[in-house]
């Protein structure tokens, strides 16, 4: 049994925060996925000539199978167009505008049955964040971008200063994963079970760890909802299938703050995978919560 829905990730963050740098990196990193990226403006997209297959007015096609498009004025129509593409990409990534609330975009993936929410990544500029969040004109919108994030990516800094970390934690009570610049982003951002296993060398991303479960765990909808709501918040990802008490079982997709439980035919056994930062997956809190 596999989940065939198109995963969608939204990259948010204010103007100049470093969204394009992250997008350039995603296009070039060897993640082996055919990504589709919808961006506001090509201007800053920087593709090595030997990676570029073709380019026209609003589409760049890469030799590694990735495609980058401008979204035009209507993001939702652009998403509708992506769903009509054949074959569909492996993963859709949307660059929110510098003032957009990424949640309002990402909510489309929660609503749309053929898509799956794969998280909100908000890029924060270490140099300017404090000043921007104090700006009465734009501060509240900047804060909302952080508040809805599942993963905060701090750019333009070698480390994350303690006061910046405190500010981010204060804005986002859900304790998002906070990453600093320079760390290979694709494996957590695109965090998919298969991709994690496909990489033979776990040492290449030492910051992440994974837990697996398979067994005879049985839950009804209410019990499963309640159990997932109590998960250690620093887990980035939980996915799998859980057996129900009657004919119906459940498809579970947790990304950051978002929990989605969909009814499916009852699976033969329950299988679950959790992915998070190593620090988060090694604590006793997680092992007390995890089944088996």
């Amino acid at each position: 049994m596999i989940d065939t829905r198109l995963p969608m990730t939204v990259i948010g963050g204010y103007l100049g925060a470093g969204k394009t740098t992250l997008i350039n990196r995603l296009l070039a990193e060897p993640h082996g996925k055919r990504l589709m990226l919808l961006v506001n403006d090509f201007g800053a997209i920087n593709i090595d000539a030997d990676l570029l297959d073709s380019a026209d007015e609003d589409t760049l096609t890469l030799t590694n199978g990735c495609v980058c498009c401008t979204m035009g004025s209507d993001l939702f129509m652009a998403i509708s167009d992506v769903l009509k593409r054949a074959p569909r990409p492996d993963h859709l990534i949307i660059e929110a505008s510098g003032v957009a609330d990424p949640y309002r975009i990402a909510n489309t993936a929660i609503a749309e049955p053929e898509m799956r929410y794969a998280g909100i990544v908000t890029v924060v500029d270490a140099e300017n964040f404090q000043a921007l969040s104090d700006d009465p004109l734009i501060g509240p919108q900047i804060a909302q971008q952080v508040a809805c994030a599942d993963l905060v990516y701090v750019s333009k800094s070698d480390g994350i200063a303690a006061d910046l970390m405190r500010s981010l934690r204060a804005i986002n009570q859900a304790q998002p994963v906070i990453l600093q610049d320079g760390i290979l982003a694709s494996s957590l951002l695109l965090a998919e079970h298969d991709a994690m296993h496909a990489d033979p060398s776990p040492a290449s991303h030492p910051n992440y760890a994974q837990l697996d479960y398979s067994g005879d765990m049985v839950c009804d909808y209410a019990a499963l909802s309640a159990w997932l709501a109590q998960r250690p918040k620093s887990l980035f990802r939980v996915k799998g299938f859980v057996m129900g008490p009657q004919d119906q079982g459940w498809l579970v997709q947790v990304v950051g703050q978002n929990i989605a439980i969909s009814p499916i035919a009852n699976p033969a056994q329950s299988t679950l995978v959790a992915i998070g930062l190593l620090a988060a997956t090694s604590g006793s809190e997680l092992h007390d919560w995890w089944p088996g």
Binding site: S80, N107, T108
Partner: peptide, 11 residues
């Protein structure tokens, strides 16, 4: 309410 929730119907 709002585009995201209306999207699956509009699509």
């Amino acid at each position: 309410q709002e585009m995201a929730a209306m999207f699956p119907v509009m699509h």
